[in-house]
Simulated assay, not measured.
Amino acid sequence: MDLITAAVGSVSVGRANGRRIAESGPYGLRLPVMPVLGFHVMLSGDGWLITERSAPAAVRRGDIVFVAAGAAHGIAREPCTLAELPPAAMGETPPAAPADFEFLCGTYPLPGGRLPALLRHLPEVVAFTPDYDDDPHLRAVVEMLGADYAREGPGSGAARGALIDLMLVHILRHLQRRWPFSDEPGVAEALRAMHEQPARPWTVQQLSDLAGLSRSAFTRRFQAVTGAPPMAYLTDRRLAAGERLLRETREPLTAVARRTGYATPFAFTAAFRRKYGMPPGRYRTERG
């Protein structure tokens, strides 16, 4: 499994959602902090990406804004501060008339509000201009996503989730140069092993041997790259896999525990409750 596939899998644990936002007026709009990972694609109009920590960045038609962990940000007509922008009216239907600017949004909920460790070294909010001529598939995905948002129909929920997954793949391909582990000797091998075989009873020593590093050097490098110690990262990966099994299958809890590396359903239940705030059975009932 490559690292982009692993990264998409680590966030595709909840139902993806999306909508079209259109805005007119002299200012723009501000999007609050939300426990989601998401993106915007500018469909029309020129404006500025406004964040709390960086200078305003120009955005225009076709540009993509990636938001790694729901940080507050805004789209403005002119450079300004985030506090100067009015909050977005998220419940309103976009106007039928042409707007000053319009964009598509796609989001994934982040359980517990935490970004998966595999993505924690991506920029918090970033805008970039794709090369649509070099990547015609991305242009097609944007067009299909816009058409899906414009008209609900049978299967829209499934199609929307798949299209948002595809958008995230293209975005991560663009951003992968920023991933510090993309050229980290040893760490990428250990990550692939954990993602391909999460149920295997890995030890730090086994992973460091796989990486070709001493145990202490591997632990330091792995934590510097992912933001988590190896065993904490593995636990997070196992629970994400368990969450997906609960939501997408009717497998009994014993089987889910075994497939995610837990010796007993009691051990899985205790770990799952710590991360998601409820036992697996209740989670399956509410989210399945």
Rank of each mutant, 00 (worst) to 15 (best):
T219A: 11
D46I: 02
L104V: 00
R192E: 10
L31N: 14
A188F: 04
L253N: 09
L31R: 15
T285K: 09
A193Q: 12
Y132T: 13
F268L: 15
T264C: 05
P95W: 04
R247N: 05
M1H: 03
E286Y: 03
I171N: 05
R19N: 13
D131H: 08
R15F: 01
A7K: 08
P252D: 07
T226M: 15
G146P: 02
Y149F: 14
Y233V: 10
F128E: 09
A99I: 07
P180D: 08
A140L: 08
Y27H: 08
G91D: 14
P79F: 11
P79E: 10
V36W: 03
R77V: 12
A89T: 13
L234M: 08
G74W: 13
W48G: 13
L246H: 07
S10R: 06
L191M: 15
V11D: 01
A159M: 14
F101P: 02
V65S: 08
S44D: 14
F266N: 05
A188K: 09
R173D: 14
T129C: 09
L118A: 09
R244P: 02
G277I: 01
M90P: 06
P87S: 13
A72C: 05
L43H: 05
Q206K: 10
T129A: 15
L43V: 11
T51I: 04
R244G: 05
I75Q: 08
H73I: 11
T249V: 07
A241I: 03
G70D: 13
P79V: 14
D209M: 02
G227I: 14
R139H: 12
Y233C: 11
S54G: 00
G186T: 10
G161Y: 07
